[in-house]
C-alpha cells in the first residue's frame, strides 16, 4: 500500500475501490525489464510483439469508427467508401490509417515471429506461446484479407474470386469449402455480407487468443538471453 499514489477526493476513492495504482505498480511501474544483452535487444527487435498489439488496438479503434459510415451492401459498399474518402470529416484519415496500419501490422507480426524463431524463444517451456502466436498470425491474415474485400471495387471482387477459388484445390472438401465461404456458388452480395461479418468476428476471436498469449508470457516470463 506504500506505493498507492496519494490522490485526493474522487480519484483516491475510485483508486481504493478499483485498486488501479496498486495493479499499475505491480504490473507496470515497478516491473523491471531485462537488460538488453544481444544486438537484437539493442536494435529493439524485442518490441515488435508489443508493436503488433498496438496496431491491433489502433485497428480496432479506427475500424469501429469506420463502421459508422460503411455500408456492407453490394450496391452501397463502394459508394459508402468513396463517401468516407471525400465527404466525411477526416474520413480519408481513418480509412487510410486503417489500411496502412493493417500492412504495418503484418510487417511487425513477421518481424516478431522471425525474432522469436531465430533466438529460439519458442523452445520449452514456451511451445504453446508459439502455437497461440501462429493462430494469431492466421487471424491477422484473415482480418487483412476480409478487410481487403470490403471496398467492393474491382480489386476486392477479383481478389475474393481468386482466393476463395483457390480453396477448391483442397482435396475432398475443397468445393464445399468454396461454397461455404462464398455463401453460394458465386461471389455475390451474400459473400460481401459474409466477409463483413468475418471481418468483425475474427478480431473478437483474436482477442481471446491475444489474452492467452499475454497470460502465458506473464506466467513464464520472457525467454532468458541465450
Amino acid at each position: 500500500m506504500e506505493n498507492v499514489v496519494k490522490k485526493k477526493g474522487y480519484f483516491r476513492e475510485l483508486d481504493k475501490s478499483l485498486g488501479i495504482s496498486e495493479l499499475l505498480h505491480a504490473e507496470v511501474i515497478d516491473k523491471t525489464a531485462p537488460a538488453p544483452v544481444h544486438w537484437w535487444d539493442h536494435a529493439g527487435l524485442s518490441c515488435f510483439g508489443g508493436l503488433t498489439f498496438l496496431f491491433f488496438i489502433m485497428q480496432t479503434v479506427s475500424g469501429l469508427f469506420l463502421l459508422v459510415y460503411y455500408q456492407p451492401h453490394p450496391d452501397e459498399a463502394y459508394a459508402s467508401v468513396q463517401y468516407i474518402d471525400s465527404y466525411v470529416n477526416l474520413g480519408w484519415f481513418f480509412r487510410r490509417s486503417h489500411a496502412i496500419c493493417s500492412n504495418l501490422m503484418m510487417i511487425t507480426v513477421i518481424i516478431h515471429m522471425l525474432k522469436v524463431f531465430f533466438t529460439g524463444a519458442y523452445k520449452k517451456p514456451r511451445e504453446m506461446h508459439w502455437v497461440s502466436g501462429f493462430v494469431l498470425l492466421l487471424f491477422t491474415l484473415g482480418a487483412c484479407f476480409t478487410g481487403y474485400c470490403l471496398p467492393w471495387n474491382q480489386m476486392s471482387f477479383w481478389a475474393l474470386t481468386v482466393v476463395t477459388n483457390s480453396l477448391s484445390s483442397i482435396p475432398f472438401i475443397g468445393t464445399y469449402l468454396v461454397e461455404f465461404v462464398r455463401g453460394g456458388e458465386n461471389v455475390t452480395g451474400v459473400t460481401l455480407l459474409r466477409f463483413f461479418a468475418f471481418h468483425l468476428i475474427i478480431p473478437v476471436t483474436m482477442l481471446i487468443f491475444l489474452l492467452a498469449h499475454f497470460y502465458m508470457i506473464r506466467k513464464t516470463g520472457i525467454s532468458e538471453p541465450l
Binding site: F65, V68, V88, N89, F93
Partner: peptide
C-alpha cells in the same frame, strides 16, 4: 474521433 462522427 468527434470530428469524424460529426455528420458531414
Amino acid at each position: 474521433i468527434y470530428h469524424f462522427l460529426e455528420p458531414p
